[in-house]
């Protein structure tokens, strides 16, 4: 395999990625730092400190931190259980997580309205059992639940990947050397699963930070996240410069998480 000319097979993709990945991102930055007439300005980016925008951003950060934390709390025990309880767990895991994806994700998110609403499924069951009803639809907890539901697979898969690769002999060795289960977890399992956890955290944090769909569907349009603000700037107000300015702010968060992922990916290889 030493015919160097064969490397030009990658040329179509390179041209494609320059045109549809790199240039578009440069365009976002260009629009972000220019005004309607094309002259330089920072006002689109500094617009983030206006009351509405900073509130939306802070709310988004709070939501995505909470969603990421909850996903980790739910996913980690799940992965530990899967590796110990289920035989052939990797195909079981892929099956239960792929299958839902074939039902449209908007529709699945929308179905939570049904489950959560005043006369919904959960309240139906609670009423039947004579328990107090609860209303979370169109309120923050519904949005949080939607995020956890939509992005849980992004946490489960990388965590599972690193947990399932832990050598069972290490656990036995820890036990033989007198570690109790808690110590084994703290000093063997957790450190070894860290790359997967970090990868899962970034994979959940970014989409929950930037979503506008979940807040639209489960928040009743009353709760504005930063994604909603950007979406409205582009589709309703057609103010592309302002929208690009806020998108540029989001890109900062994304770049940070890319660096974190890249760092841990590399350490994972070693």
């Amino acid at each position: 395999m030493n015919n160097r000319n064969n490397r030009f097979l990658a040329a179509p993709y390179l041209i494609w990625s320059a045109g549809f990945i790199i240039i578009p991102l440069v365009m976002v930055l260009y629009y972000a730092f220019t005004d309607f007439n094309g002259s330089f300005t920072v006002s689109n980016v500094t617009a983030i400190i206006s009351y509405v925008n900073i509130k939306a951003l802070m709310l988004s950060i709070a939501f995505s931190l909470a969603a990421t934390f909850m996903c980790l709390i739910i996913a980690y025990p799940l992965c530990l259980i899967l590796t110990t309880v289920i035989k052939n767990s990797s195909s079981f895991l892929s099956l239960i997580f792929i299958l839902p994806m074939w039902m449209n994700s908007l529709l699945r998110t929308y179905a939570w309205q049904n489950i959560l609403e005043r006369k919904g499924v959960i309240n139906g069951i609670l009423a039947f059992l004579n328990l107090p009803l609860f209303y979370i639809i169109n309120k923050p907890p519904a949005i949080l639940l939607g995020m956890i539901y939509d992005f849980l697979p992004f946490m489960v898969l990388p965590v599972y990947n690193s947990v399932s690769r832990i050598d069972k002999d290490l656990l036995n060795a820890a036990r033989d050397l007198g570690a109790d289960p808690f110590e084994t977890f703290l000093r063997v399992i957790w450190p070894l699963s860290l790359p997967g956890v970090i990868s899962g955290i970034t994979m959940v944090f970014v989409p929950s930070l930037t979503t506008f769909v979940i807040s639209d569907i489960l928040g009743g349009g009353k709760i504005l996240l930063i994604g909603n603000v950007i979406e409205q700037l582009f589709t309703q107000d057609s103010d592309w410069n302002a929208g690009a300015g806020l998108s540029a702010i989001l890109m900062v968060f994304i770049v940070i998480s890319m660096f974190i992922t890249a760092k841990y990916d590399r350490e994972d290889i070693k």
Binding site: L25, V28, P207, T211, A244, L250, I254, T261
Partner: peptide
């Protein structure tokens, strides 16, 4: 790794 909204907006632009 990019957020879908940023990818979408960038292509739109």
């Amino acid at each position: 790794l990019n957020a879908d909204i940023v990818t979408g907006v960038s292509l739109m632009l």
